[in-house]
Design a protein around this nucleic acid. Structure first.
Length: 261
DNA sequence: ATGGCAAGCTAAGCTTGA
């Protein structure tokens, strides 16, 4: 089974690239982030014609997540509230950043973690609060779902080897101690970075800035991840980053990451 | 040190992204 995470930076702009990628990579599940479209305008039919069931949670202009699955999914829901309750979640489900469902006995959680703007900003505080809610959410679902795959755009560089210039970027959002600590608190619940099961060295990234020829100079960040529960991590056979879509004209700034088990 | 590119919204320039 192959599960892919890909921040497409607008599904309507990237529709043809995603179709062509799926035609050459007929994966079981594709998790998308930054779809940037309300549900009624989401281009579902081209993907349904490829055989995928589509599950979407979008909003106008910003954010938005979707899961495409060859087999129908069960227990699909979006946002924190179905697990944590409205009172605890408050306004944190207004931004569409979480969708989940179960297929082949695997629970898939597709995330678009807030960017955080800059360290110390209001959006940064929002990101840390969002990560706290995520931790509480996962604490509940991991007990019910032995086979859990949490994937998406985390907007966090886990370690210095996951970025081209850790010193030069050390004050950037995505690298702060609080963000990395929040991620580690989540992983302590019993999750493994699938990519690092197979690849130890640095120099592997999933996002490159559009500006300053980031991709050509390989000035990248590894911020798109699959985190697997222990039973699932033991079944994993590979986790690779496919850089080829990033080389196309008018690409997303992120590229797909594929885990197989 | 700063901004650089791209997308959406909406009709020129702002907001967001990481």
């Amino acid at each position: 089974m192959k599960i892919v995470t890909w921040n497409v930076n607008s599904i309507r702009t990237r529709q043809q690239q995603v179709i062509e990628w799926l035609q050459t990579n007929p994966v079981d599940v594709l998790c998308l982030q930054e779809t940037k479209v309300i549900d009624q305008d989401f281009p579902r039919s081209p993907f349904e014609e490829l055989g995928y069931h589509t599950y979407i949670s979008g909003q106008k202009s910003y954010n938005g997540v979707a899961i495409f699955s060859l087999s129908p999914m069960q227990d699909v829901s979006s946002g924190f509230a179905p697990i944590l309750g409205e009172d605890k979640v408050g306004d944190f489900d207004i931004q569409k950043r979480l969708i989940t469902g179960v297929v082949n006995d695997v629970c898939i959680l597709n995330l678009y973690v807030p960017n955080g703007a800059s360290v110390g900003s209001e959006k940064y505080d929002y990101k840390l609060h969002w990560l706290k809610l995520l931790q509480e959410y996962i604490k509940i679902v991991i007990d019910k779902s032995p086979n859990l795959c949490i994937c998406g755009d985390f907007n966090i560089v886990p370690e210095d080897r996951d970025i081209h210039d850790p010193e030069g970027c050390k004050n950037s959002v995505g690298l702060s101690d609080a963000e990395r600590q929040a991620l580690q608190e989540i992983l302590k619940l019993g999750l493994v970075d699938a990519f690092r099961q197979f690849t130890r060295e640095g120099g592997h990234y999933s996002w490159w800035d559009y500006r300053a020829a980031g991709f050509r100079r390989n000035r990248g960040w590894r911020i798109d991840h699959h985190y697997l529960s222990l039973p699932l991590s033991q079944k994993a056979t590979s986790c690779i980053i496919d850089k080829s879509p990033r080389q196309l004209p008018k690409p997303s700034d992120h590229t797909p990451v594929i885990v197989e088990f």
